[in-house]
Amino acid sequence: MDTKKSYADAYKDCAWVDFASLEAFMEDALVHSGIPQADAKVIGNVLIESDKRGIDSHGIGRLKPIYIDRIDEGIMNPVTTIDVIKDEKTAAVLDANNGMGHVAGVKAMQMAIDKAKEYGMGMVVVRNSNHYGIAGYFVTMATEEGMIGVTGTNARPSIAPTFGVENMLGTNPLTWGLPTDEEFPFVLDCATSVSQRGKIEVYGRAGKELPPGWVIGEDGSTRTDTAQVLKDLTTGHAALTPLGGIGEQGGGYKGYGYATVVEILSAALADGAWMKQLNGTDDKGNHIPYPLGHFFIAIDPAFFMGREVFKKIAGTICRELRDSRKAPGNDRIYTAGEKEWEAWQYRKEHGCPVPPSLQKTMITLRDRFKLDYHWDFEKN
């Protein structure tokens, strides 16, 4: 694959903005929304990491609709106060008090890592939190320490159970990060649905129809009308399909099962909220907080056969997979985390692609907060 050509084609309508100014802009906008400077720096770092990895659904595109708008509505606390409910040798329970999920997530994963350094494993759960950005950010906190990282989070109901059409479960990623002896770790960061709301929003901004099989309607058939789907996902008139798709033929029960595992772990260990309690509306239709739960696990290979042994074998497995026979018409096999690493190799030289709709949002926030930012795309 010609990476440069494919990126140029994929983002031909976008303006490219350097990461340093984009991250600074997000931090400044967050501070002007009432978030303390130190916390804004944490959140900005999580968001920009998404854009660096090519995960366009969870970076600058989430700044206004998920965070600033919810702060404006009064359903998310800009100041994050974290209570330690329980703290044992290898386990802890935190309450984020409806604060910023990124801040709670970084604290929780660091606690899990510190416990793993001392005891081999650590697990920390969080309740009453909010959307925490890309799950992959937290597992790479562990891989950077030579450890295995695991995290999951529940979310507002989006997925219909197999043989159902009602959105009951969140997109609930079950995310793993494994250190390797390569330039990048193995990071499996994906929703337990065929697609997720953020990717559908990307399609919406581009004015594109959805691929068949991503969304199921109330009549049990697939939906592709992106703009109406985004509305109907919120009102419960459409639902995402679990990994494997509609019904059992493609293994949809597997995605449904894993989404349920994440839901239970995100709620039950911390005595937190689940499923319809995360709808974000009360019985009168008023917007209310989304009291999400997260879990974070760190495992130190040093307590097994050693970090270097683990990394060498993990890297060898990845290389053997990539070197295996290719299907006709395909010249590469990827392992998890490789495409994100390649996206960064390109983007660290070119910056972040910003589509026209997002350019307007950035200008709106800049003008609202009277920030001193000027971008090349304004000249066009």
Score class of each variant (00 low, 15 high):
residue 187 V to S: 05
residue 197 R to T: 14
residue 266 S to Q: 02
residue 203 Y to F: 10
residue 221 S to V: 10
residue 280 G to S: 02
residue 287 H to I: 04
residue 182 E to L: 15
residue 282 D to Q: 02
residue 239 A to Y: 07
residue 227 A to K: 15
residue 212 P to A: 15
residue 182 E to A: 15
residue 211 P to M: 09
residue 251 G to M: 04
residue 283 D to Q: 13
residue 234 T to M: 11
residue 219 D to S: 10
residue 239 A to W: 09
residue 262 V to D: 00
residue 245 G to A: 05
residue 264 I to L: 12
residue 238 A to N: 05
residue 213 G to S: 10
residue 273 A to W: 14
residue 237 H to L: 10
residue 250 G to V: 07
residue 248 E to H: 00
residue 235 T to A: 03
residue 258 Y to D: 06
residue 278 L to T: 06
residue 269 L to F: 15
residue 259 A to I: 08
residue 278 L to Y: 02
residue 266 S to W: 05
residue 242 P to L: 07
residue 288 I to F: 03
residue 242 P to D: 08
residue 252 G to S: 09
residue 216 I to K: 07
residue 220 G to R: 08
residue 243 L to M: 13
residue 253 Y to W: 06
residue 197 R to A: 02
residue 251 G to L: 09
residue 236 G to D: 08
residue 251 G to I: 08
residue 193 S to K: 05
residue 181 D to I: 09
residue 219 D to Q: 09
residue 254 K to D: 00
residue 183 E to K: 15
residue 193 S to N: 07
residue 208 K to H: 11
residue 240 L to C: 12
residue 261 V to S: 04
residue 267 A to D: 12
residue 253 Y to A: 08
residue 205 R to Q: 10
residue 286 N to E: 10
residue 255 G to K: 04
residue 213 G to N: 04
residue 207 G to L: 02
residue 287 H to S: 09
residue 257 G to I: 06
residue 215 V to R: 01
residue 208 K to V: 06
residue 266 S to A: 09
residue 207 G to C: 06
residue 202 V to H: 01
residue 216 I to S: 09
residue 185 P to S: 03
residue 184 F to H: 06
residue 252 G to C: 03
residue 231 K to F: 10
residue 233 L to I: 09
residue 276 K to H: 14
residue 268 A to G: 01
residue 257 G to K: 11
residue 193 S to F: 12
residue 207 G to N: 12
residue 252 G to T: 05
residue 211 P to I: 08
residue 274 W to K: 02
residue 207 G to W: 05
residue 267 A to G: 13
residue 273 A to F: 15
residue 189 D to Y: 05
residue 233 L to R: 07
residue 220 G to P: 07
residue 185 P to R: 02
residue 204 G to H: 03
residue 278 L to K: 11
residue 258 Y to C: 06
residue 208 K to F: 06
residue 192 T to S: 10
residue 245 G to N: 00
residue 278 L to Q: 02
residue 245 G to C: 00
residue 256 Y to M: 05
residue 244 G to S: 01
residue 249 Q to H: 14
residue 234 T to Y: 06
residue 283 D to G: 01
residue 249 Q to D: 12
residue 183 E to A: 15
residue 272 G to D: 14
residue 228 Q to W: 03
residue 184 F to E: 11
residue 185 P to A: 08
residue 244 G to E: 01
residue 253 Y to K: 00
residue 198 G to T: 11
residue 256 Y to W: 13
residue 201 E to H: 07
residue 284 K to I: 01
residue 190 C to I: 13
residue 235 T to F: 13
residue 244 G to W: 08
residue 256 Y to N: 08
residue 187 V to Q: 03
residue 190 C to S: 12
residue 233 L to F: 08
residue 189 D to P: 01
residue 210 L to I: 07
residue 240 L to N: 13
residue 282 D to G: 07
residue 282 D to I: 04
residue 245 G to V: 10
residue 264 I to A: 01
residue 188 L to G: 07
residue 241 T to R: 08
residue 286 N to Q: 14
residue 266 S to K: 06
residue 196 Q to Y: 13
residue 286 N to V: 05
residue 203 Y to I: 04
residue 262 V to E: 00
residue 231 K to T: 14
residue 250 G to S: 14
residue 227 A to F: 12
residue 240 L to G: 12
residue 269 L to K: 01
residue 282 D to V: 04
residue 187 V to F: 11
residue 239 A to I: 13
residue 240 L to Y: 14
residue 211 P to L: 13
residue 218 E to N: 12
residue 277 Q to W: 06
